[in-house]
């Protein structure tokens, strides 16, 4: 599956619909679904929020892999921004010290079995695989 989505949070629902269709069409294990939805949303939102210098649409690709699914998101005409570096978030901190910042990518890194970042020709591409549902 290859599909482009505009840089808007309004596209999250169509992305969920496209994911749902792909899971059914390709008979992907439904227990992976919530983890996949979460990772796609967090990475898509990250691109929309931080790569603000472009209006280009974001490409979402999905492929079945042995025992799971591989998903890629590609952002065009943007600066390098690698969200896959592990974030230092203290999940044991008291309420007064907790913030939302960084939590999305932190959760992505907990959900995926592998994740890879590529940057070339001003294209920023993140690819992850999930073979076991964590949530």
């Amino acid at each position: 599956m290859k599909k482009f989505f505009a840089r808007s949070f309004d596209q999250i629902a169509p992305i969920v619909d496209a994911t749902d269709h792909f899971f059914k069409e390709r008979n992907i294990d439904p227990s992976l679904r919530t983890s996949v939805d979460l990772c796609i949303e967090e990475l898509f939102v990250n691109m929309v929020n931080y790569n603000t210098e472009t209006q280009r649409e974001i490409l979402l690709e999905m492929e079945p892999v042995n025992g799971g699914i591989e998903v890629s998101l590609t952002d065009y005409d943007v600066e390098r921004f690698d969200p896959t570096t592990p974030r230092d978030i203290n999940i044991d901190a008291p309420l007064t010290e907790r913030t939302q910042g960084g939590l999305g990518v932190y959760l992505v890194l907990k959900m995926v079995d592998s994740i890879h970042y590529e940057y070339h020709d001003r294209q920023s591409k993140i690819t992850f695989q999930i073979k076991r549902g964590k949530i």
Partner: peptide, 19 residues
């Protein structure tokens, strides 16, 4: 059915204010 980090942020902000 589902909550992402954006939802967690909503709960966190509200909980802090009420606390």
């Amino acid at each position: 059915e589902y909550m992402s980090s954006a939802g967690l942020g909503v709960l966190l902000k509200t909980h802090k204010r009420l606390m």
